[in-house]
């Protein structure tokens, strides 16, 4: 099994980089309407989601937890202007799921913006919101987030799982990068981002136990760190995580001394904002994979025969 310290250190360093580059989490209020004001919300929502996982699992050190708390606070107060940017987003594009998706983890962490909540409750009553033509995994995520918000999911999650790629357990040799991202997100939504591993139906858990090692081996050799990180999260969501030593060592070795994780092969060059936009996601994923795998490693230790 992989050294837990190595797994843990990946997450510590990732948080250091995210904190040092927190200004990269930025909106563009004056953006051309054709580009869309909501385009830059995604990184903020992902950051909050993963910081929430970090608090939930309770395996972060004090420095890491402090940085995560400050990052969430910084993005809520500054990037989202205390939630007012989310209200604005809902005014610009009322039925977009994005402001709601970004808001949910902040709400779960104790932040509140009543106007976002009022709009969300109204949109939830609209047939139009339930009928949005999202791809099946995103639709599953929307319903899961509605449940977490305290609403009755429309449509119910159980009605949505079957439409995902993963639920059909298709031929594993057809998996491409796009399919792999779909299936990792299906797992995230089914398990509430690793909180409930038993949310994976047994046939899907068996399927992933069988084939995930192949995909991890493949994307490790391809040095696709962003996708590898997501696959390592999926591993940590399985009933018996492998915490694959070779994959974790390769993943850790790809991380830069300052904590940044390149998306593919090596670090890109360019303007700081461009570099941030390329590597914030793999670095967030590194933090996510690290905290879940560390938590599972400690669970295995606790259950190991003495």
């Amino acid at each position: 099994m992989t050294d837990t310290r190595l797994i843990h250190t990946v997450g510590v360093r990732a948080l250091e980089w995210l904190w040092a580059h927190r200004d990269g989490f930025r909106l563009e209020p004056d953006v051309d309407p054709d580009v869309g004001f909501l385009e830059r919300f995604k990184p903020v929502g992902e950051l909050a989601l993963i910081c929430r996982v970090l608090f939930r699992e309770g395996v972060a050190g004090s420095r890491q937890a402090d940085l995560a708390r400050r990052l969430v606070d910084h993005t809520w107060r500054h990037t989202l202007d205390g939630g007012r940017m989310l209200v604005r987003g809902q005014r610009v594009e009322p039925l977009s799921p994005i402001p709601f998706e970004v808001y949910l983890p902040y709400k779960e962490l104790g932040y509140s913006e009543p106007d976002v909540e009022r709009a969300t409750v109204l949109y939830h009553r609209l047939n139009s919101w339930a009928a949005l033509e999202l791809d099946p995994t995103r639709r599953l995520g929307m319903s899961a987030f509605q449940r977490r918000f305290g609403l009755t999911p429309r449509p119910p999650e159980a009605d949505l799982v079957g439409a995902t790629w993963l639920a059909r357990t298709p031929e594993p040799w057809t998996v491409s990068g796009h399919i792999a991202y779909d299936l990792t997100h299906t797992v995230f939504h089914l398990t509430d981002w690793g909180e409930r591993p038993d949310g994976l139906p047994p046939d899907i858990a068996d399927y992933l136990t069988m084939w995930l090692p192949v995909w991890i081996d493949d994307w490790l050799d391809l040095k696709r760190w962003d996708l590898l990180g997501e696959l390592l999260v999926v591993d940590a969501c399985l009933p018996r995580p492998t915490l694959d030593e070779r994959a974790w060592e390769g993943f850790a070795a790809a991380q830069q001394p300052d904590g940044a994780m390149p998306a593919v092969r090596t670090m890109p060059e360019g303007e700081p904002d461009e570099v941030f936009d390329t590597v914030y996601h793999p670095t967030l994923v590194a933090a996510f994979a690290s905290v879940l795998a560390t938590s599972r490693a400690l669970t295995q230790l606790a259950h190991a025969p003495s």
């Binding site: 040799w173 998996v175 090692p213 192949v214 493949d218």
Partner: peptide, 14 residues
């Protein structure tokens, strides 16, 4: 058989 099946998937992917 499972290891060989995994190897088949790996070979097709590559």
């Amino acid at each position: 058989p499972v290891d060989l099946a995994r190897g088949f998937v790996r070979a097709v992917r590559r």
